[in-house]
Write a protein that binds this DNA or RNA. Structure first.
Length: 868
RNA sequence: GCCCGUGUGGUGGAAUGGUAGACGCGGCGGACUCAAAAUCCGCUACCGAAAGGUGUGGGGGUUCAAGUCCCUCCACGGGCACCA
């Protein structure tokens, strides 16, 4: 082979085909009733300034699916937009004096350019940013509809307050109890805030998870736990020696069966009873205060010791009026779950046991495992400080003895529901959810203004829809602490839309999770003058394949599921579940290096010597810091721009899909990138060699083997891409490329072989086109095709060529492989037995022993079993 | 603490209960070259000269047959809510 072939130059080829797709509007989608649609969506990016490798991986996967489905005949919607509100823009304003708006739109422009250099098959005509007034006006309109539908509530809630910056802090802005910028000790403050009533849908959001069969089980489980349904009993206990006006204490329990194991009551520091008792008890007040302080940091809670304070109040056991138990305030009781009060049963709850052991409270076992060994083990564990929370039989429980816990639960609930305390039932069955309503107020500038007006006379008045959008003012300053909207000189001063009197705008803005809770629906009709055009949504929704990071497994996905329900309830959408299939991809990770003193070093500065890793410039010894998620602070980021510039977008895309399964973390390595680049060059050479062969050759028997390989590859790659197994699809493509390479080595070939070879190369190009679209287009042109790959249908496997006529079967003796045989497909025992028994390897292994069993797994294996 | 994952060659990883290690990277050997790069070809789990044996984190079990199913232990990773 001495064909002189120019190197494939991605720097000229990639922009050329990107222009071709743009000029031909190849990816602009429109509704075509009757034609099957496919909606592919990747979680849209926050415009931080530059794309990172995680974006490259995410958008490459989505693009492969979009291009594959498109070629397979679907009408594909594959849009892109920007999740553009949020704190980083305000931080840039405060730190560098840039306006959030210009910062954001400049970042969008830069990132759009980067995404375009990746050659993604996106419909850019549908692009929007959530900070566009043309987007958020609909968000405001829908919020007003939600208000009318009773899905919005205003209530008081605790926030992290920075007393120096006069601002509310997000949890991630609180570092070790202090404001991240001011360093001031963070206070807990009560503010009136807006809430969306997601809890109205708790049961539905939970049950509907069962229908999401194409979601990862892990994500469904996380959502199930987050919603946290429990069935229990509300029980009212009479109390004595309590502050005036307090005569009873209502608790929630999921274990009323263990009521005879009660040894104390515990209430939250914020419980009204605790507050009342604190009034004349400074020590208790101080204890409650310390509990509240601890509440800010998750880490503190986890490591905190169980602490309690005896209030002196005494409660009467609901099943025995002579039985009195003490009431404590305890640091592990949360006010916002259940009633903020519990009864403690130390023997069967670990937290209660820890608490009881610390304060010398009685421990009574009331559930015993039925198995004797397990029962004595449980007793030993209890003595050693481990509570038993399993099933068994009731003991030490008077009338309940002998029942199992489920029966005991029912018996207690039935009895107490009949009994009266102060004229009302003592107990009531109650289903409880952990899920809380969604607080959506943020005291910040760069977000969607909440469209309500506070009037001194009329109270809260929604902004009339004709006045929407409520626009963010551009002329704001960030020189003063606090919310720029609140101290803007004029913006908030308006007249009441109802009475015309003096009124003030709401200066809070929405949580940015709202923006991303309905963008998928907006993409169906991004220019409509309603939030969602019903016809467009009916055609495109739901999203057939949604792809993003596992970090959004709970909040974003749960909020989106709630939002589509709320939109359904208000007539904006016709369905409840927005994402039919979900895929969560792994992170991009890279090696890290540190100096002995712990400073991070760029991987490019680390060199390996016999003594170990050293700094290339200084010779300082280095330690490997492990393989970690790419981050600037660890100096292990790889810039997609540099990769695309030096190797091309196709190489970067190919690398991201190769080897590692898409749901796992992928390690970026230079060697891997170089390997992918070499493969693009190899494909280019092979295609050019094949293009020189006679295009008019006709198939005959001599090309059969290669044709079978081609068609089997089509079948396998199609199946792999349908199931998002990109790494396997790529392995199949290497095999086909190797087969083509071998065929090209031959010095002479028959017309049938030429025809098969050209078919194999055409197939190869079409199959790798979703992964490396630019190279595919260029190859396709070289091969003499007039129509671009983007307009060429996906190849079909010919069943006659994928079917096997002969198979290799393994021959085992007692489960150990001894030989293999080539036989016609479907060979039966009658044919196989004489063949196999005649094998020398078999008779040697049998060594004269009689055959007791002869097992045939058709077309796979023969196993001969003999006595040992 | 609880919950969920994951453990396979030097390495990333394949494998509907049916021939473990496909494919890639790396390594070794060879061809081409004055030479190098690039490219192409071959070999590459371990022990053994071979026959053969051993191998999917450890131990046990089910099965004609286990990386795959069950029990148990270990290691690593991730998530979380002290949730009554």
């Amino acid at each position: 082979m001495s064909v002189s072939i120019e190197r494939y130059n991605h720097r000229t080829v990639e922009p050329k085909w990107q222009a071709h797709w743009t000029d031909n509007k190849s990816f602009e989608a429109s509704e075509e009733p009757g034609r099957p649609k496919y909606y592919v969506l990747e979680m849209f990016p926050y415009p931080s300034g530059r794309i990172h490798m995680g974006h490259v991986r995410n958008y490459t996967m989505g693009d492969v699916i979009a291009r594959f489905r498109r070629a397979a005949g679907y009408n594909v919607l594959h849009p892109m937009g920007w999740d553009a509100f949020g704190m980083p823009a305000e931080n840039a304003a405060i730190e560098r004096g840039v306006h959030p708006k210009s910062w954001t739109y400049e970042n969008i422009a830069a990132m759009r350019k980067q995404l375009k250099s990746m050659g993604l098959s996106l419909d850019w005509s549908r692009e929007f940013a959530t900070c566009d007034p043309s987007y958020y006006r609909h968000e405001q309109a829908m919020f007003i509809d939600f208000m009318e539908k009773g899905l919005v509530e205003r209530k008081s809630s605790k926030v992290n307050w920075d007393p120096v910056d006069h601002t509310v802090l997000a949890n991630e802005q609180v570092i070790e109890g202090r404001g991240w910028r001011s360093g001031a000790l963070v206070e807990q403050r009560e503010l009136s805030q807006w809430f969306l009533k997601i809890t109205s849908y708790s049961q539905d959001l939970l049950e509907a998870l069962d229908g999401l069969g194409n979601w990862p089980e892990k994500v469904r489980l996380m959502q199930r736990n987050w919603i946290g349904r429990s069935e229990g009993l509300l029980v009212r206990w009479q109390i004595e020696r309590a502050p005036a006006g307090h005569t009873e204490l209502e608790i929630y329990t999921t274990r009323p069966d263990t009521l005879f194991g009660a040894s104390f009551m515990a209430i939250a520091a914020d419980h009204p009873l605790a507050k009342a008792a604190s009034e004349n008890n400074p020590e208790l007040a101080a204890f409650c205060e310390s509990c509240r302080r601890m509440g800010t940091s998750v880490a503190a809670i986890e490591t905190a010791e169980k602490m309690g304070f005896d209030t002196g109040i005494v409660a009467t056991h609901p099943l025995d009026p002579t039985w009195k138990v003490p009431v404590y305030v305890a640091n592990f009781i949360l006010m916002d779950y259940g009633t903020g009060a519990i009864f403690g049963c130390p023997a069967h709850d670990q937290r209660d046991l820890d608490f009881a052991r610390k304060y010398g409270l009685p421990v009574t076992q009331v559930v015993k495992p039925t198995d004797a060994a397990a029962a004595s083990q449980a007793e030993a564990d209890l003595a050693a400080g481990t509570a038993y929370d399993g099933d068994g039989v009731m003991v030490n429980s008077r009338v309940l003895d002998g029942l199992d816990p489920a029966e005991a639960f029912k018996a207690v609930a039935d009895k107490l529901e009949q009994e009266r305390l102060a004229g009302r039932p003592v107990a009531a069955r109650k289903v409880n959810f952990r899920l809380r309503d969604w607080g959506v107020s943020r005291q910040r500038y760069w977000g969607c203004p909440i469209p309500v007006i506070h009037c001194e006379t009329c109270g809260i008045v929604p902004v009339p829809k004709k006045d929407l959008p409520v626009r963010l003012p551009d002329d704001v300053t960030f020189d003063k602490p606090g919310n720029p909207l609140a101290h803007h000189p004029t913006w908030k001063h308006v007249n009441c839309p109802q009475c015309g009197g003096k009124a003030a705008r709401e200066t809070d803005t929405f949580d940015t999770f709202i923006d991303s809770s309905w963008y998928y629906a907006r993409f169906c009709s991004p220019h409509a003058d309603v939030p969602v055009d019903a016809g467009a949504a009916k055609y495109w929704m739901g999203v057939d394949q949604y792809i993003g990071g596992i970090e959004h497994a709970i909040l974003h996905l749960l909020y989106s599921r709630f939002y589509s329900r709320a939109m359904h309830a208000t007539g904006h959408l016709h369905m409840d579940e927005p994402f039919a299939s979900l895929f969560t991809q792994g992170m991009v990770v890279h090696e890290t290096y540190k100096t002995v003193s712990g400073e991070w070093v760029l991987p490019s500065d680390a060199v390996k010597q016999e003594s170990g890793w050293v700094h290339a410039a200084t010779g300082e010894p280095l330690v490997t810091g492990g393989i970690e998620k790419m981050s600037k602070s660890k100096k292990n980021v790889v810039d997609p721009d540099i990769i695309i510039e030096s190797y091309g977008a196709d190489t970067a895309r190919w690398f991201m899909l190769s080897d590692t399964p898409p749901e796992r973390d992928i390690e970026w390595t230079d060697a891997g990138a170089v390997g992918a680049w070499k493969f693009t060059q190899r494909l280019w050479r092979m295609v050019n060699e094949a293009a020189a062969l006679d295009a008019g050759a006709v198939h005959d028997q001599s090309g059969l083997a290669l044709r079978q390989t081609s068609h089997r590859t089509v079948a396998a790659v199609t199946d792999d891409l349908m199931n998002l197994r990109f790494n396997r699809a790529i392995a199949r493509l290497y095999e086909l490329a190797n087969a083509v390479g071998t065929a090209l080595q031959k010095s002479s070939r028959s017309p049938g072989e030429i025809a098969a070879l050209r078919e194999a190369v055409d197939t190869l190009v079409l199959l790798f086109a979703p992964m490396m679209p630019h190279l595919a287009e260029e190859c396709w042109k070289v091969l003499g095709h007039a129509v671009a790959v983007v307009d060429t249908p996906w190849p079909k496997a010919d069943p006659a060529l994928t079917a096997l006529t002969e198979v290799t079967m393994a021959v085992q003796v007692n489960g150990k492989r001894r030989d293999e045989i080539r036989v016609p497909k479907g060979a039966t025992r009658d044919v196989l037995e004489p063949m196999v028994m005649a094998l020398e390897s078999v008779s040697r292994a049998l060594d004269g022993k009689p055959v007791s069993k002869f097992i045939v797994v058709p077309d796979r294996i023969v196993n001969i079993v003999c006595a040992n």
